[in-house]
Every structure is written in C-alpha cells, then in structure tokens.
Simulated scan of single mutants.
Amino acid sequence: MTEVVNKPEREDPLAWQTKKAGQLLVASARHSYDPRVDVDWDQPLAEDRWFLPEKRISLYGTDLYESLSHEQQVLLSREELAASLASGVWTELILLQLVARYAYKRDVTSPQVQFALTEIADEVRHMIMFTRLVEKVGAQWYPIAPKTQRNGLLLKTFAPLPALWAMLLLTEEFFDRFQREQAADETVQPLVRTVARIHVVEEARHITFARTELERFVPTLSPRRLELLRNFLAGIVKTIRRDRYNPLMYERAGIDPAVAVAAGRDNPIGKANGAYGAERIAPYYKSIGLIGGKSEKVWRDAGWLSA
C-alpha cells in the first residue's frame, strides 16, 4: 500500500491540479526571463573567482586536491561546472520530449497542458543559456557517456508518463539545491550566479507542477507498477553518481583522470554532497511511496537517504 504524505483536505486531485496549473501560468507570465537580454554576456569574468562553490568540487578535501595549485583548483571548478551544464542540457532534452508526449493527446485548452507547453519553452531557453555559459567561461562542450546516451534514447521513446514526472522532479530538485547555493555564494563568478538565479526561479514552477502530478498519480499505481517506478528512480540515482566523476573533466584540468576518478569516488565529502543534493527529494519520495523495497538500499548506499 502506498504511503501518501499527509496533507490538509483539499478538493478533488484533478481539480486541485487544474487550479495549481492556472496559478503557475500566471507566475510564468510575471516571472520569466530571456537569457539573451536578462544576462549581461559582455561582462568580463571576475579574476580569481570560483565557477562553483569550492566545497562542492569533487576532489575537495582529498590529498590530491591539496597537491594542486590554486589556479588548477579554479580550473577544475570550471571544468566541473561545464560538465554539469552538459548533463543538465542532456537531461532537459529528455524531459522536453517526455513533456511533449504528455501534451500530445490532451486537451490543449486545459491549464495543465498549457503549463506543460510553457515548461517546454522554459527548458529550451535554459539549454541555450547553459551552452552559452560554457562558451563564455572558456570551456569546451562535454559529450554524454555512450551508455547514458543509449539509455536516454530508450527513455525518451518508451518511458511511461509517471516516469516523466518522477525523473523530472528527482533531477530538478537535486540540481536546484546546488544552484540555489551557487546563486547566493559571493565567491562564485557573478555570471554563473546570474544564470543559476534565473534557473532557480523558473525551475521552482516546474517542481511544483511535477509534485501535483505525482501526488495525483502515485496513489493509483498497482504494487507492480509502483515497484517498477521505484527501481527506475534508483537507476537514475546510480547514473547521476556514476557520471559525476567524468574522466574528461579531470584530464582537461591537467590531472591524471584515473587517479582523480578513484579519489573522487572515495571522497567522503563527495558522498556528503550527494546527500545535500537529495536532502529535500529523498524524504519526499519516501513519504509518497517512491522509495521502498529493493530501491531503498540504492538510495541508502548512495548516502542520499538517512532517515
């Protein structure tokens, strides 16, 4: 039996979702950004600023990190930012196609579908913004790992819609944690902070909508379908952990990639960073039944679930 998070009595779930979608459409009209004009791309990079908070660098706290010069540490922060942005673009490409599938057979006049279309427009702007940021900071683009690419082709074509909202919420909640921190950290490049701030504001709407979809849909799943969805999400957790330590970003920072990958994976601070990213989404997923059974071990082994 799915355990649903306790909430105050409210109207029919579909009516609640329709109302929420209407509110999100209004918020989108009032608080959307065009990165072509709302980001000052002509501003020079600030001297000696990090490209992400130092404590979030994958090697931070290791002997290997301490052996690097300060300039090389900053360079590594740039490469890790670029690699994470490439992963973000790949993820949003997958979600964009899944959201389009959601809208395909539905009434386009409904607030839910209109917000889904608005979300697609948001994601397209975000992808362009991320690629432009990679160019601006002087990094090269990062290809997605072949295994992840192959899995993505299957996912975007065959994944059921519940998987769409569950994956969307997992990835956006996870990365939103770090981007909120980036936006507020004055040691980080101002341009990076601006991009993070825009993304946080617009992704907050997507997160809210995904939650309303899941809270309506998860209680209707059969035990078998619920278990399949739990295992699917556990697979996403494994993929995020595996792809976090991209050998190419260490190579581009002038570090032996094999040594760096091993150091990063063994770094307890890295595991703590994963727990930080999952701090909101893991308890929420457990409360609505999306973590349980065999999948719970994956989340705990990753350090993403403590309670």
Rank of each mutant, 00 (worst) to 15 (best):
R230P: 03
R216A: 14
F209K: 11
S222T: 12
H206C: 09
R197C: 08
A196E: 01
A234R: 01
Y250H: 07
R241W: 05
L191M: 14
P190W: 02
E227Q: 15
L191S: 12
R230V: 02
T239Y: 00
R242V: 05
I207V: 14
A210E: 11
G235Q: 08
V218G: 04
G264S: 09
F232T: 00
P268E: 07
A234S: 04
G264F: 01
P247D: 05
V200M: 08
I207L: 12
K238D: 14
A253V: 03
L226D: 00
T239E: 13
G254A: 11
D266K: 14
R216C: 06
H199L: 06
R265W: 00
H206P: 04
R224A: 14
V192S: 08
A234M: 02
F232V: 03
E251L: 13
R230M: 07
P268Y: 03
A263V: 00
R230G: 00
R211C: 12
I236K: 15
V237N: 05
Y245R: 12
G235D: 01
V261A: 08
T208D: 13
I240D: 03
A262R: 15
P219Y: 03
A263N: 10
V218H: 01
R224V: 14
I236A: 13
R244Y: 00
P219A: 01
P257N: 06
V195K: 03
R205Y: 04
E251Y: 01
R252G: 09
R265M: 13
A260H: 08
G264A: 02
H206G: 06
I198S: 03
P268A: 05
L214C: 07
K238Y: 01
E203P: 06
V237G: 09
R244Q: 12
R265N: 13
R265P: 00
L233D: 07
V201A: 14
S222C: 11
A258H: 09
